[in-house]
Design a protein around this nucleic acid. Structure first.
Lengths: 236, 236
DNA sequence: CCAAAAGTGTTTTAATTACACCCATGA
DNA sequence: TCATGGGTGTAATTAAAACACTTTTGG
């Protein structure tokens, strides 16, 4: 039995995949191999299959492109203007993923002609993908101001200067390193390692890693890593 | 031209409509007039039509049920388990609306056998609607802790004790009225009226109303109406 | 005249910010 | 030895919380 007299639609998932290379925020884009907009840049997406949920579709697509699974990803928003895709109506649900750019496996995605683009110099994107990215960034700035999600962008071991650069990059601001260090360490989310990263200074900076248990427990807590007056207005 | 070899699905919008009667939070539910689950209670929903966006579908459905339009409503989350509807696969996008319960027009919805239920004593709901409501409440608690959205639940003129009761109800806590008043007034979002509401005390409480311009401008700002230790952990 | 709810200020505590110098080391 | 980036503490400011009495008035 079916519901009668109703129109059925294509539903797609588009993945907005963010990375951070130590200096810039990056977005993983693919060159579409098929019409319309063949050869133009696009978010990685795909149609929802009959047996899978949207979350599952998003995971499948992310894995296809990056080889990664079990990464931080969440539903962002649906995009449903009837004419957003010129071929046929498609409702797209955008997902945002934050990945460690170093775990990304180039070989996986050769088929897709994928490339990391700095969010400061994005190419033209198909359909409403530019809008999706803008909204994703706004929401990321909002959420990251209160929740420790940016850690997902870093490798397992990272230094406090790296972490700070990541926050400074997202909010385009300078943060006092003493205050930043104190706030970050007061969350107890980090474990200090014994090694140092000497790649960016002679003295070397101590590595830290996430205290996984503590991180998961406190993930949803409200934190406050950036100065009050840098906190962006909310979204939605 | 169409995309080939892809399955098309039904997409529905379900509206989670909250109200507040001065004491309790309420949810507007309808008794489904058709199978499956005929006679059971349900959120108001409907299928997305070919020419409308999801936002438009949600507005249409809200209007149909309540007679209201231009109310606070936003997309919450998609629900997409393939088997969530036993008849046929339907992807539902849940919207949350906050309305002034007094503006709701009973006559509009006679067809739907609609009823306000206190969120403390909800009936059994069809499909995954209970889950939708739970998530909506969690997100509402989170968002209302930082943004002045609960005002949408009140009539144009309201008193500070009413406002406080509304916050206390949502977080199931008592708030110091001196601190609460100070915080609320410091936002400059409210205009004091000259009249008093004498319905709940002999002395009477002054009415306040939203300073609409200021409200819209500062809507997205981060506020802090409830004590720190009552702020719920985040969601998502 | 009194019960019941509204209104109002000050003190204490906690959180956040501002701010500057020493350290370690490879070149 | 010195240039470079890493690391650290304290004082001042601001925000939030705790706390209790007076006012109004209908019954």
């Amino acid at each position: 039995m079916k519901y009668s007299n109703q129109t059925r639609l294509l539903v797609a998932v588009d993945c907005i995949i963010f990375g951070f290379d130590g200096t810039d925020y990056k977005l993983l884009l693919i060159q579409r191999g098929f019409a319309p907009e063949r050869e133009k840049w696009s978010l990685m997406g795909g149609f929802v299959q009959p047996e899978e949920s949207l979350d599952e579709a998003a995971e499948r697509i992310l894995k296809q492109l990056t080889g990664l699974h079990e990464v931080y990803m969440e539903e962002m928003q649906a995009f449903s203007q009837p004419d957003r895709d010129p071929i046929e109506r498609v409702i797209a649900v955008a997902y945002v993923a934050l990945i460690d750019i170093e775990k990304y496996q180039t070989q996986i995605n050769d088929d897709f002609h994928a490339r990391w683009y700095s969010i400061k110099e994005l190419p033209n994107l198909i359909f409403d993908h530019k809008k999706m990215v803008e909204i994703a960034l706004t929401k990321l700035r909002y959420k990251a101001a209160f929740h420790p999600i940016l850690f997902e962008l870093l490798p397992e071991k990272f230094t406090l200067p790296q972490l700070q650069a990541m926050y400074e990059g997202l909010y385009d601001t300078k943060i006092d390193k003493r205050n930043f260090t104190r706030k970050v360490l007061s969350t107890k989310l980090l474990k200090k390692e014994n090694e140092k990263d000497k790649s960016s200074s002679k003295k070397g900076a101590f590595y830290y890693s996430l205290d996984e248990d503590h991180y998961k427990e406190n993930f949803t807590n409200i934190h406050n890593f950036i100065p009050r007056n840098e906190i962006p207005a909310g979204v939605e």
